[in-house]
Design a protein around this nucleic acid. Structure first.
Lengths: 233, 233
DNA sequence: GATTCGGTATGGTCTGACCATACTGTGGTC
DNA sequence: GACCACAGTATGGTCAGACCATACCGAATC
């Protein structure tokens, strides 16, 4: 506090203004996924800024999974509004893990939280289990650890989807995405996947019979089997 | 499947190459928060691309909360690696809520999940409650709904921090951030905040005495009081 | 009717310039 | 020697203008 009542003027960059304008337009005009934004050159002229600034704003929106840009001409070309938070979340987690701003332990703990909750939710709602069953079959047919993890990821993401909460499911997908390599190593270390298979069947059965508590327990013990070093029940 | 074995060549944009290179450098050189990246012009020359492409890559990294750019000259100028996922997550949620790609109901459900888990964790660990107490005092002194929500947010974020999981805490902060306006309206609708105060005291006590189940229950009932329309226990 | 081919609007990239900012070093002043 | 004023300089931020590849559109052609 310097007592003068002055506070530092926040530096506002041009592309941030552009972002704010676009966000305002989205809110005011009620734009939703599928709608098109004006072309870069047109937007630049309308806002009285250079195309570079518009492009930097577009890059931000694209990074956040809010727009998708297509080159060329026609109805599908240009910047189209989307709603794909998944890859944005994955990038975010991956980079921050790389910067040592996060630890794998925290990621797995968070995953445990979401998955327990999602399993209980899915069981309570007697959610559709066809996705779970398909992923289970995929794991049985897998010929390598990579392939196994691929279907394992599908299983757990299907479980999150079955919770009916798209936000939780998106976070789940990103978590799995950012720990893929780690999971492959864990499966290779484990060697035998029959324990994991039994766990998956148990989770599926709990959802099918509509037993939330059992579903949560099953998830918890499954993670303890898969990541014995990091995970204590 | 066209049977030819061909697959569409993924269009790779220059700035994406730059991103990949920077990410590789971070991993290989073991760069962490606080380290500096080369200047834009220098990076452009080293990678053989234009400064625009480098700038677009920088914009992406900045959006993801991985770098922070400072103008001027000196040790603090230039692009510095950071690890601030919070604002990135907030932007992401806010924009996707605006696009109707997410519903408030899902945000509050997710918040419920995290907070129940965090409260139980904090209680089990007998975490430090000074932050919770300070936020509680702030709420008592608040003169408006906005001010109340400010300290309420601090309380719940402190609870998430007390879980010891930075990822869960970061998600929590972003969730609160993106639902701020909604929370203010909820408090105004409620009028009397004494019920909320009792809930907060109950949560704090549960953490202090180390009772995880009671902490989770207290959080659950608190949310039911705060958002009666959206939340069914 | 089908095909071909030029026109055109789109994003992607590059170059080169200029600005505001904020440190750095130099030289002068007390 | 300590201090201060000022020019130098490296930084990100912005702009203008050009060119490219892409992909659709539509008219001319067969």
């Amino acid at each position: 506090m310097d007592g003068t009542g002055w506070r530092p003027v926040k530096r506002t960059r041009t592309f941030e203004d552009v972002l704010a304008q676009i966000e305002r337009r989205i809110a005011e005009d009620g734009l939703t996924a599928g709608d098109r934004l004006p072309a870069e050159r047109q937007l630049a002229e309308q806002l009285g800024v250079s195309r570079s600034s518009v492009r930097e704003a577009m890059r931000v929106l694209e990074t956040l999974g809010v727009v998708s840009s297509q080159v060329g001409r026609g109805p599908d070309a240009g910047a189209v509004l989307t709603s794909r938070p998944d890859s944005a979340l994955s990038d975010l987690l991956r980079l921050h893990l790389g910067l040592a701003g996060l630890e794998m332990r925290e990621v797995i703990d968070t995953r445990h939280m979401i998955e327990q909750w999602a399993a209980a939710r899915a069981a309570a709602a007697r959610a559709d289990i066809s996705g779970l069953a398909a992923a289970l079959a995929g794991m049985d047919a897998a010929g390598s650890a990579e392939e196994f993890v691929e279907h394992d990821t599908a299983f757990h993401c299907a479980l999150a989807d079955a919770s009916g909460n798209r936000l939780a499911a998106a976070i789940m997908r990103s978590l799995r995405d950012s720990m893929r390599r780690y999971s492959v190593e864990a499966v290779q270390r484990l060697g035998d996947t029959s324990v994991l298979r039994a766990d998956h069947v148990r989770i599926l059965e709990a959802v099918r019979t509509g037993d939330p508590d059992e579903a949560a327990r099953a998830v918890s013990e499954h993670l303890a089997h898969a990541y014995p070093s990091l995970f204590a029940v």
